[in-house]
Amino acid sequence: MHQSIVFSGFGGQGALFAGQVLTYAAMDTGRHVTWIPSYGPEMRGGVARCTVIVSDDEIGSPIVRNPDVAVVFNNPSLEKFQTEVRSGGLMVVNSSMINVSVDRSDIRTLWIAGGEIAIELGDVRMTNMVLLGAMLAANPVVELSAAEQALRDHLPERKQHLADPNVEVLRRGYRTATKE
């Protein structure tokens, strides 16, 4: 197993953190894993993107040209990654923020109302966990339970009160995508 997953959105949408939760889950289940952001000069706003590689073997390059999976949070991310996801790959699309159509028939596309689901469960800022949950349903690179545990174990002390709602959202994203 060797898989590359990109999370991409605006700064503040939680794309980098979604990638980190996956990275922790992969590490805690004994996998090799790398997390690398594409970073810019902005403190906030701008593009926030990370590449996570999960592998059974030692990881060489932490970056790829054509990721296996892209989780896209906004229009610019969709436009970029719908050309870059490899043939046969998967794209998870945040339909709450994206109104561009996908014109690739050689990849799987999963539309999920990340924003609406997060708002329904209490806070739009949990959109990232909806999308991560949905991605894991369509592509079980780690078990859902491993992602839940990673969230609980690695949220900093001062944010522990957010663990339960985030786990709930993660599960909802997973269940919603399972039904699709």
């Binding site: 590490m27 894993v33 997390w35 690398i36 952001p37 932490p62 970056i63």
Partner: peptide, 10 residues
Amino acid sequence: DGNIGQMMEP
């Protein structure tokens, strides 16, 4: 290089 400063690994 900046990659190693910025990336996360176990």
